[in-house]
Design a protein around this nucleic acid. Structure first.
Lengths: 340, 340
DNA sequence: TCTGGCACTCGATCCGTACGAGTGCCAGCC
DNA sequence: GGCTGGCACTCGTACGGATCGAGTGCCAGA
């Protein structure tokens, strides 16, 4: 029906105006600023229906309407097209990310870039270890019984772990240990590392066996341990601008961002299909994120997902622009990390 | 004179009360809460003098007094004793920091600990490279002409750097390169690394010379480059609580914290003598830090300074407690890193 | 089905008043 | 000479009432 269609136009206009002005929007202003072809009175009727359906709400009786989470959801799903980035913005992304010196550099540039493009808090997950493969293992003797194990993955990530051995290790055994570990694990997906241990123990010379056992145990532990997934976070200063959208205080949100595990779950639960994922307000199912939305996407090549990245901001955000930025950056970062 | 002494007591009382209540403090309240042995009227006279000398100020005519930066300075220098930590707090520090798995883990635990003890934003500088020594160098071939250089220092720090060589590198040359680099640089202070390059080039076999030249150039560049000094920051959520002390907005401060270079300068300019350094308000000479104080201290053993750590908070902070916390944590972290 | 008109609601704003915390000054006391 | 109690004064805050206006819901008519 024609006026179902118009009601959606009204909702879209409400979202757009509210996002840009932060004032509850009334029927009169709506009629003036958008070519809806009908009078304020008609719009009021539409608004009454939209409110009844739960897409908008009024803060108090004599105020305009504000989109609800449900309203934003409909807007994102059906009323907005992801806005393509301008050529200048694309160039900015390339210029910003090219020339990174190492993995950390790539990620920290990414996070700054995202924060700058979206004016929100940006979050990038380190490439997940379990999906990478071992490129090289290095063992360095730090003290008699202390070894430093350094793992280099094919995504350029470098992991380190201190190992306390039960007894002192002979200096000449270290080289043997290194060779053994490398021949056993080289090229292995980290997720499969555990299954290689029995073979390794069989082939190890008897005098090294206990040493190999404790080191490989520590290695597997490091790799499998999911808590090791780290985040790079940036653009927190943008929260100060968005403070008006978080009535109580920024505190819970800032705490959640420090409590990395919460954000990690949000960012890492991405659709592997290469689509941008938007979680609006209560959909995040976390108290500290009341009034906040998360726009995220996985990065990596089609056959190998590496991790997730995204932004966190108030529900009252410019979804089309932010979704476009997240998508563009995720794709470009995926390319860069696939190359190296 | 006796009443000079009393005026200082009055200033101390004003600072203490103001820090704990955040209300401008008046003469009557002061006389009630502190045993100054004189009447409010007398205190008023003292306050008039203190104000004239610039130690305190009144926000408006009918309000109590508030310490100025100069007043806090006097308080820190002459009126407060660094408050020793309780045995329980000491134990908490040890429990919190022991059992860290690697350098990053030590630093991130440290930052969380400091933030928790002081209720302020905590900052820890990575151990400065140039004061460390090379423990091991690892070269991994990532692609034909691409090498990943991994540096392990005696402070447990692991640095990585991608090197793009002008031509493809033969697989068997990589091992030779590794051996050459290690024999040349092993045990060298990073600051001295540059001076070792000529010798290295002389001893290198002719066919490797150009390769060694480009790799060692990149190595020296990585080591000397001071911008590589990184920070770990935590406790940003504490700023939300302190928001009342930053009248305009938290924005400039949050931005300064992201603009790591500003904070880095503050934290790294520490007295090497092992004393806590306090910078109050305008002493920081940075616009974004108006109303903010920095409490910092170097860590490392007596003969080898590694870096700085500290906290950033409103000028209205509990200096004695915070100075004690910074000092205790800096000492303990220095111990831990010296051991490894 | 849309529109103009109208009465109504209710938060925001403004203004005037009262209150009280805090001060500076002064005369008197030890 | 220094301390104290008393007192007049200032000025920011809290409170209450009046006004304003944006926005609404409803209804009759086109």
């Amino acid at each position: 029906m024609a006026h179902d269609e118009r009601r959606l136009q009204v909702l879209r206009a409400i979202v757009q105006d509210y996002v840009s002005t932060n004032d509850p929007v009334g029927s009169k202003a709506l009629a003036e600023r958008h070519d809806l072809g009908v009078s304020p009175a008609t719009i009021r009727n539409d608004m009454a229906v939209l409110e009844e359906q739960g897409y908008i709400a009024q803060p108090h009786t004599s105020a305009g309407r504000v989109p609800t989470d449900k309203g934003y959801r409909l807007f994102v799903d059906r009323l907005s097209a992801v806005k393509p980035l301008s050529a200048a913005e694309r160039r900015a992304i390339e210029r910003f990310l090219d020339g990174a010196l190492d993995l950390y550099d790539v990620l920290s540039r990414t996070v700054r870039l995202l924060a700058q493009l979206t004016h929100q808090v940006a979050v990038v997950q380190y490439p997940t270890l379990s999906r990478s493969a071992v490129r090289h293992l290095e063992v360095v003797q730090v003290a008699g019984s202390r070894l430093l194990l350094v793992l280099i993955t094919d995504t350029g990530r470098v992991e380190q772990r201190l190992i306390e051995c039960p007894v002192d290790v002979a200096h000449e055994d270290v080289a043997d240990l290194r060779a053994l570990l490398n021949s056993a694990f080289n090229g292995a997906k980290l997720a499969d590392a555990g299954s290689k241990v029995p073979d390794l123990l069989d082939t190890a010379p008897p005098n090294l066996r206990s040493l190999v056992a404790s080191v490989s145990a520590a290695l597997v532990e490091t790799l499998v341990e999911p808590g090791e997934d780290r985040l790079v976070i940036g653009g927190t200063a943008n929260l100060a601008r968005a403070a008006v959208d978080f009535p109580g205080s920024l505190r819970p949100l800032l705490e959640a961002l420090e409590e990395q595990v919460v954000v990690l779950r949000l960012i890492s639960e991405v659709d592997t299909g290469g689509a941008v994922l938007v979680r609006i307000g209560e959909e995040n199912a976390h108290e500290a994120l009341t009034g906040a939305s998360v726009v995220s996407m996985g990065y990596g090549s089609a056959d190998r997902a590496l991790g997730g990245l995204g932004i966190v901001g108030p529900t009252r955000m410019d979804y089309p622009t932010n979704m476009a930025a997240v998508r563009a950056v995720a794709r470009y970062v995926g390319q860069i990390l696939a190359e190296s």
